[in-house]
Design a binder for these strands. Structure first.
Lengths: 194, 194
DNA sequence: ACGATAGCAGACAGACCTGTCTAGTCTCAT
DNA sequence: ATGAGACTAGACAGGTCTGTCTGCTATCGT
C-alpha cells in the first residue's frame, strides 16, 4: 500500500504474517494491551523486520485498520451481489452484519474500538472516519436506488441502526440485534418510499 | 461503597477528589492512556492515599464506572420526571440522550469504551453488564407503561436505537443522531401499540 | 494534652513497552 | 561464486507504568 509493491505477492510470508498477527491480536484484545513482542512472536518474525517494514507501532495499527477497511468493503459488496432487487440489496447489509455478529470472534466495530482507546488526532481517527464515511455513502446509494424520497435521511437512519446492531452484537453476543435492526430497516424503507 | 462509610461526607476532599479526577481523565482519554500519576496529580492527592483508599488501579476503574452508572440512573430518571404521558416518558429517554450528546465533552458510552480497551472477565465487564441490563429494564417498563403489546420486543428495538445514537453522537459529534433516533422510536412506538 | 487517623511528598523497586543496534543466516540473480 | 537484500535472534537503552515504603504533617475526638 505504501510505495511500490515490486512484483506482487510471491511467498506467503513477511509483512503479511505481521499484518495477520496484528489483525488477530489487536482486534481480539485491543491495541494497548497487545505489545510489539506479542505480535512478532505470533507472526514468527524478528523485531527488526517489523520496524523496517512499518516504521512504528502506530503505522502497524494504521495498516491493520486499513486492512480491515478493505476487507469490510469487499465482503459487504460481495454479500450484496446476491440480491437484484434494490430493496433487498439495502436490507442485505443487515444480513451480512447478522452473519458477522453471529461468528464467535466478533468483538464489535474495529474502528470504534480502536478509536475508544486512542487519543484523537492520530492515524486511527483518519481511517476510522474514512470507514464511517464509506458506510454512510453506501447506505446513501442503496437508499437512492431503492427509491427513497430523501436518501440522505434514510441513510442516516440506517447508520444508527447499523451502529446499534454492532454494539448489540458485541455486548449481548449474537446476531439478534442485527436481525431486529433489519426489521426496523424494513419499516423505515417502506415509510421512506411511501 | 466498599465497607463502612463512617459518618458520611464531611469535607469536599479525599477519595472524592480521586473519583472526580479519575472520572474526567478516564472518560476523556481512556483508561490505558491515563496513568496513576496523572490521576493523583489532578486530584492533588498522594499516591499512598490512592492505594490505601482503593487497592489497585482496577478498583479505581470499577469505582469510576459505578459512579457513572449511578449518575446516569439519577440523571435519566430525573429527566423523565418532566413528562406525565407514558409515551412522552419513553421518548424522553432520547431527549436526555440528545442533551448529553450535545455537550462538547461527550465521548460515547463510558462502559462500552472501557470494555473496548480491557480484556474480558474483569470488574469492567461486570459493571458494564449491570448498566446495560438496567437500560434494557428501563425501556421495558416504559414500553409496558406505554401500552406496547410486546414490551420486551420494543425494549430491544429501543436499545438498538439508543446504542446507535450514542455511537453516532461520539463519532459524528452532535445530537443529530439522538434526535433521529427519537423519531424512529416514535414510529416504533406507534407500530407497537397499534 | 495527646494519641489516632488521615493525608502529603517523594524515593524506590520491578515489570513492561517501544524502538535501536549488532551480528549472523538464507536465498537468489548475476 | 559472490555479493546484495531480506530475514532472524536477541541484547540493550530509555522511558513509563503500577504498586510499596518511609517519613512528615495536620486535624480531631477524648
Amino acid at each position: 500500500m505504501s510505495a511500490a509493491s515490486p512484483s506482487a505477492t510471491r511467498k506467503p510470508s513477511a509483512r503479511d504474517r505481521l499484518l495477520a498477527a496484528a489483525d488477530e491480536l489487536f482486534y481480539a484484545e485491543g491495541i494497548h494491551t497487545v505489545g510489539i513482542d506479542r505480535v512478532i512472536e505470533r507472526a514468527g518474525v524478528a523485531k527488526a523486520s517489523l520496524y523496517s517494514t512499518f516504521g512504528s507501532k502506530e503505522e502497524l495499527v494504521r495498516a491493520y485498520l486499513e486492512g480491515r477497511h478493505a476487507l469490510r468493503r469487499t465482503r459487504l459488496l460481495a454479500g450484496l451481489e446476491r440480491y437484484d432487487d434494490p430493496r433487498d440489496r439495502l436490507l442485505g447489509v443487515f444480513e451480512v452484519l447478522a452473519e458477522l455478529t453471529g461468528t464467535p470472534g466478533f468483538r464489535g466495530c474495529a474502528f470504534y474500538n480502536a478509536s475508544a482507546e486512542s487519543t484523537p488526532g492520530g492515524a486511527i481517527e483518519d481511517v476510522s472516519n474514512t470507514n464511517r464515511a464509506w458506510t454512510r455513502g453506501l447506505f446513501y446509494e442503496l437508499a437512492r436506488d431503492a427509491g427513497a424520497h430523501d436518501p440522505a435521511r434514510l441513510a442516516d437512519q440506517l447508520v444508527i441502526l447499523y451502529d446499534g446492531a454492532s454494539v448489540g452484537g458485541r455486548m449481548d453476543r449474537g446476531s439478534t440485534a442485527a436481525l431486529q435492526a433489519r426489521e426496523i430497516a424494513t419499516m423505515l424503507l417502506a415509510a421512506a418510499t411511501l
